[in-house]
């Protein structure tokens, strides 16, 4: 929940140079997210207890969750992509969850961030497909057995459909995070405005406040769900790249 005046802006004290892009609060929370993920994995697994404690359980559960997802969706040959999918999932998940803290900045609510992530996935998937299948990859754009006469229509449509993955992958995460946080802010504004109206206003403000409490819970669900969706779609695209069709 970015608080008023906490839209994306450079933290001047951390600015490296005035020419290059400054170090923004978005970057700061990416860094915090990265440190938190590393801390969870390193500190959580430090004991290597046979019966895991809470932190170790959390680390193990998230690891196994993504490991099984990659195994199920991509198959055995997809296991080498596990580190990539796991990093992506944890980064998005921590971005979403950090954004739930008061005064924090949700970097996944910016299309520049989600689009970059989606572009990384897209380039990797295309590179993997080209590396495994070579020029056979281009048969992806023309289904076998289709009449040659339809090629001028089918090929552009398939290419656009393939390219639209980047857009839908990035917009899904971005739109979900923005929509939830905008709703939270709108109802929070209702609470403040109604609350300033005296006794009747305070009674009236209870309704948007109650709704906001429910929305916060819903936002936690969305935070996990969208990280999961981002990861599983990455897996499905990787499956397509490895198996081609």
């Amino acid at each position: 929940m970015a608080v008023e005046g906490k839209t994306i802006d450079a933290l001047s004290q951390f600015e490296l140079t005035h020419v290059a892009a400054g170090f923004t609060n978005s970057n700061l929370y990416m860094l915090i997210g990265g440190v938190a993920i590393s801390a969870l994995m390193v500190l959580g697994m430090q004991k290597r207890a046979r019966v895991p404690g809470r932190l170790q359980s959390l680390a193990e559960v998230s690891y196994e969750f993504i490991y099984n997802m990659v195994d199920e969706q991509v198959g055995r040959e997809g296991r080498k992509f596990f580190p990539f999918v796991f990093t992506l999932f944890m980064f998005v998940l921590f971005g979403n969850l950090l954004g739930m803290l008061p005064y924090a900045f949700t970097f996944t609510s910016h299309i520049a961030v989600t689009f970059t992530l989606a572009l990384v996935v897209f380039i990797l998937v295309t590179a993997v497909a080209l590396a495994i299948h070579g020029t056979k990859f281009f048969s992806y754009f023309f289904p076998e057995g289709a009449p040659i006469a339809l090629a001028p229509i089918i090929i552009p449509v398939e290419i656009i459909s393939y390219l639209s993955r980047v857009v839908s992958l990035s917009v899904r995460l971005f739109a979900n995070m923005v929509a939830g946080h905008v709703m939270l802010k709108v109802f929070a504004t209702f609470v403040v405005l109604l609350g300033s109206l005296g006794v009747i206003g305070i009674i009236g403000a209870a309704a948007p406040l109650a709704l906001n409490v429910a929305l916060v819970g819903f936002e936690f669900l969305v935070a996990f769900l969208q990280a999961y969706v981002f990861a599983i779609l990455t897996c499905i695209y990787l499956h397509d790249a490895v198996h081609l069709h």
């Binding site: 289904p143 229509i153 552009p156 398939e158 656009i160 459909s161 839908s168």
Partner: peptide, 28 residues
């Protein structure tokens, strides 16, 4: 041309989504 092809690609996307994973093989 892009509007029409893009619209067609959108329909293809939805068709694939509704077919699920097994249906991805052939569109026909």
């Amino acid at each position: 041309a892009g509007v029409f092809l893009g619209g067609a690609a959108g329909i293809v996307n939805v068709y694939r989504l509704m077919l699920g994973r097994r249906g991805k093989k052939d569109l026909g």
